[in-house]
């Protein structure tokens, strides 16, 4: 049977890379002694898969994962057992059964929603808000993306942002996954911040969605 679970990752664990997290889950599955299904072949690995990778340094509030089991088990039991085997700052908060042939998370998810809480004094925050307004009004905002061992690339930041909205000092950003590569939330935030501010915000990915052509969205 297949289980889809929702997990949260915060505290220092937001600094784990996608690969670190994969390894962590693989070991947690063994510790939890869940009847996980394994892939065939010379080097069998547990059948667990995740949504699109999150950037290092971002918290995850509703991250998604799929797990295949050899034997049926209540989703709540899977959740409980997994939680006992996870380190602090990482927890499963929901689990449900899905069809074995449900589309893969990676294939379906096409929208990520972020929240960035700015930690700035009022004057600086006002400047950021002004810049955000100008950004939203602009047709194009080009920046140079630095790429390790490759030439810098010109990208249009504005085109990569579907929606933005302020709630006090928190900026909510909607960024679709584009086939040509999507913008990174940190690129938008760094653009908005005056130079020299560093990462003066707490960034979280708060949701992953499937958005249809008519702008309806659902959590997979």
């Amino acid at each position: 049977m297949s289980i889809r679970f929702v997990y949260q990752v915060d505290g220092v664990l937001k600094f784990l890379s996608h690969l670190d997290l994969l390894k962590l889950f693989n070991r947690a599955l063994l510790r939890a002694s869940l009847p996980v299904a394994y892939s065939e072949g010379f080097n069998p690995h547990p059948k667990i898969s995740f949504g699109p990778p999150r950037g290092v340094g971002q918290e995850g509030r509703r991250e998604l994962g799929d797990l295949q089991l050899k034997e049926p088990l209540q989703p709540e039991v899977v959740m409980q057992r997994l939680n006992l085997a996870l380190p602090k700052n990482l927890r499963v908060v929901a689990a449900k059964e899905i069809a074995d042939d449900a589309p893969a998370l990676m294939a379906e998810i096409n929208l990520a929603v972020y929240e960035a809480e700015f930690i700035l004094e009022p004057a600086l925050l006002a400047a950021v808000k002004d810049k955000a307004a100008a950004f939203w009004a602009a047709d194009r905002v080009e920046i140079l993306r630095k790429r390790p061992k490759k030439r810098d690339k010109m990208i249009d930041l504005r085109a990569g942002v579907q929606y933005l909205e302020w709630q006090d000092n928190t900026l909510c950003l909607e960024i679709p996954f584009a086939e040509t590569g999507s913008v990174k939330p940190a690129e938008v935030l760094q653009y908005l911040l005056p130079p020299g501010c560093g990462a003066a915000y707490r960034l979280a990915r708060v949701g992953l969605f499937v958005q249809s052509a008519d702008n309806q969205r659902r959590e997979p």
Binding site: V12, F15, R31, G57, P87, K88, N89
Partner: peptide, 24 residues
């Protein structure tokens, strides 16, 4: 020093995972 480490160091270093305690 958790707050300082989290906000002033970890976002800017190479391989931050090597500095995280609280492992299983």
């Amino acid at each position: 020093w958790a707050a300082e480490v989290e906000s002033q160091l970890l976002p800017y270093v190479d391989k931050p995972a090597q500095y995280l305690g609280g492992e299983y």
